[in-house]
Amino acid sequence: MAGETVLVVEDNKMNRKLVITVLKAHGYRVLTAVDGAEGIATALRERPDIILMDLQLPQVNGYDAIRILKSRPETAHIPILAITAHAMDDERKRAHEAGCDGYITKPINTRALSPLIRRHLDARTPE
């Protein structure tokens, strides 16, 4: 519980709120963005420790946002977990191609969320 910053990019308000609730309960500092563009801007500005990125986003979609973030030296090292629909292989494949580090399948398992994030944070290469 180091109070790492988690950026949640999610357009659906209910989902966003659910994730925020769960993460805050687990002691994370949570930043939010509602579309890809805002997500990118926030990530560049705030340099979160990890990003949860929904793929179906208005304006700049999740794939592009991941690709951009992974192409910028400032953010390339930040783990990005894609929030994908239920067993949508296609989405997973595309997200992987875009450069994401892991997946969170909808419906979000609130109990598995925190351990997953923890695992990714711990797997980060020490700087």
Binding site: M14, L18, V22, P107, I108
Partner: peptide, 24 residues
């Protein structure tokens, strides 16, 4: 349909879990 149905269900399931887990 599935998307539309699931999204609210996500919230229903998710928030009930939040409550059940005593996160709030």
């Amino acid at each position: 349909m599935s998307h539309e149905l699931r999204t609210p269900l996500n919230s229903i399931i998710g928030f009930s879990e939040v409550l059940l887990d005593g996160l709030v």
